[in-house]
């Protein structure tokens, strides 16, 4: 402890400096907060009734198209494959994380180098569920072995079961519950920006298009 000055700054080894320097601010901040924080206030109960007149799939499709995405209702994986073949005929590199859908061009070794995904034309991934009120789909890294894939790809296709369309975000978090993941993301439509004079442009840094195949079975 000889190396510590009054301010908590340390001159000894780097490691010690890290520990004491930051510990000191930590204690300072926590002490100030303890002194400042007001008397305890109760957490409210989350009570949000579900809309009874909502057709979840219909709503999901309407919202998705309003945010620049496209939905296809399909009966089988074969049908999805046909649609992909038709829509992405000239794609050189397709990475599919859905076993029923074919990849094209060079595949990848998860956990090696995410930069090698730079030239992916289409990524096909499976969503755990979707949310009707905002057309977001939930994807976690157990289905997405390389996190950047769903962002770096030029086009994104997602497979979603109709039965997995929830109505509101509150249900979404009920469904997620206490599940563990390293990374999870809600994706709603293609990446977009309106930073230049509020003109909406699809395709900022993430995928330029987003297609969702809703399996009816």
């Amino acid at each position: 402890m000889n190396g510590i000055k009054k301010t908590g700054r340390l001159i000894n080894t780097d490691q010690l400096r890290d520990i004491y320097y930051y510990m000191n601010s930590r204690e300072k901040i926590l002490a100030a907060i303890k002194k400042s924080q007001p008397a305890p206030r109760e957490l409210p109960v989350l009570d949000f009734p579900l809309p009874d007149d909502m057709d979840a799939q219909e709503k999901f499709i309407a919202v998705l198209s309003s945010i620049g995405g496209a939905a296809h209702t399909v009966g089988s994986y074969d049908e999805i494959q046909l649609l992909i073949n038709r829509e992405y005929n000239d794609a050189a590199r397709i990475i599919s994380l859905v076993p029923e859908i074919e990849s094209r061009g060079q595949y990848f070794e998860p956990g090696t180098n995410p930069h090698l995904l730079e030239d992916v034309d289409l990524a096909v991934i499976k969503a755990q569920f979707g949310v009707a009120e905002n057309a977001a789909v939930w994807i976690t890294d157990d289905m997405l072995p390389e996190r950047v894939l769903s962002f770096i790809t030029q086009n994104l296709a997602v497979v979603l079961h109709r039965r997995d369309i929830l109505q509101l975000m509150h249900q979404a978090y009920e469904r997620i519950g206490g599940r563990d993941y390293g990374f999870g993301v809600f994706i709603a439509g293609p990446s977009k920006t309106a930073d230049i004079e509020q003109s909406l442009v699809l395709g900022a840094h993430g995928s330029r298009t987003m297609r969702i195949f809703i399996l009816q079975s």
């Binding site: 905002n134 709603a188 990446s191």
Partner: peptide, 9 residues
């Protein structure tokens, strides 16, 4: 918007 395009956890 109903939600941002990406809500990353």
């Amino acid at each position: 918007q109903p939600i941002t395009t990406y809500s990353s956890h």
